[in-house]
């Protein structure tokens, strides 16, 4: 069987070059607007940037996937449809979509364009995945981060399209594309605006020696003197349920499923994905290079190299997340 495909993030052309140079098999990216789920200020690609990115990547045998994975706004489908049109025109190798209306449009207008189902569609079962395949010709599904490895293995035994899973980076504890926590606190959501816990609604407030991080006026965390501070992503905050402050939903940890490569291979996963289009090019270069090295060793049947990625995750805290049942 073929080796894993390594799918890497890029938030700008410099990050794309870093990912390509570090050994990505494919790079995924988005346009500079609300059509993708990392619509952060100063991030992402213009049409011109995409053309350059495709040229750079294709010259080096690397694919480019364009994420158009938010849900088009009622009465204003244009930006999303144009994004699909332009991705096709500029020779992207695939588009990553979530909305069924947009999938229907892309399948109809661009029958030769390869369609991937975004994690934002949260297709977690055989029946749903077959529906996306049959209705739109979806060729690959990015699995939501709610499944254990044995569940993924059983799923792959019953479907005949490729699966891609997240192996490294930030991790939503909630089913993706089905979460309105951000819009509850700020009015801006991943599904509609492509943002989660947006910086526009973040404030840091000194409280004596402590530092509070707030989102939309709600206190998301409070850091004592000397404690490393965190960005107030809502589901990674400390809250009170009862009297004790606790990371109720998820600790500020980072997913790293490197140790699970043999199991993911046995589960017939096709592609491994690194999260972090919002991360800097230095981060992307380091993580992609580390995973490239590990995948090459794994493909040759060698022992997995010890990867020092602790430096890139907060406090060195890493988890295998939902891949293991104990996470639940």
């Amino acid at each position: 069987m073929d080796s894993f495909e390594l799918i890497c993030p890029a938030g700008n052309p410099a990050a794309l070059r870093a990912a390509v140079d570090a050994g990505a098999d494919a790079v995924y990216l988005g346009f500079r607007d609300e059509t993708n789920a990392r619509n952060f200020p100063g991030l992402n690609f213009s049409r011109e940037d995409l053309a350059g990115a495709v040229a750079y990547a294709h010259a080096r045998g690397v694919q480019v996937f364009v994420a158009i994975n938010t849900y088009p706004q009622a009465g204003n489908l244009g930006p999303w449809e144009r994004a699909a049109d332009d991705a096709a025109r500029l020779k992207a190798d695939a588009v990553i979509l979530a909305d069924v209306g947009l999938l229907a449009y892309a399948a109809r207008r661009h029958p030769d364009l390869r369609l991937h189902l975004s994690v934002q569609a949260s297709a977690a079962n055989v029946e749903a995945i077959r529906l996306y395949r049959d209705a739109f010709g979806v060729r690959r599904v990015v699995l939501p981060r709610v499944l254990t490895v044995p569940e993924i293995a059983r799923l792959n035994a019953e479907i005949d399209i490729e699966t891609e899973v997240f192996v490294f980076g930030g991790m939503c504890p909630m089913a993706e594309g089905r979460c309105s926590l951000s819009s509850y606190a700020t009015g801006l959501s991943p599904n509609r605006q492509g943002v989660c816990s947006p910086a526009s609604h973040v404030r840091y407030e000194p409280r004596g020696a402590a530092l509070a991080s707030t989102l939309g006026g709600f206190t998301i965390n409070l850091f004592g003197e000397g404690e490393q501070a965190g960005y107030p992503t809502l589901c990674k905050g400390r809250f009170l349920s009862g009297d004790r402050p606790a990371y109720l939903f998820e600790e500020p940890t980072s997913l790293n499923a490197l140790e699970l490569l043999p199991e993911l291979k046995a589960a017939k996963v096709r592609a491994l994905k690194i999260e972090g289009r919002q991360r800097g090019k230095a981060y992307i270069a380091a993580v992609v290079a580390a995973y490239r090295k590990a995948l090459d060793a794994f493909a040759k049947g060698q022992a997995l190299p010890m990867l020092n990625l602790d430096a890139v995750v907060e406090g060195g805290a890493q988890t295998t997340g939902a891949f293991k049942r104990a996470w639940r």
Partner: peptide, 13 residues
Amino acid sequence: PLAISARCYHARA
């Protein structure tokens, strides 16, 4: 309703 998860937060709490 705001979110659904594979993880049980009631149990976790």
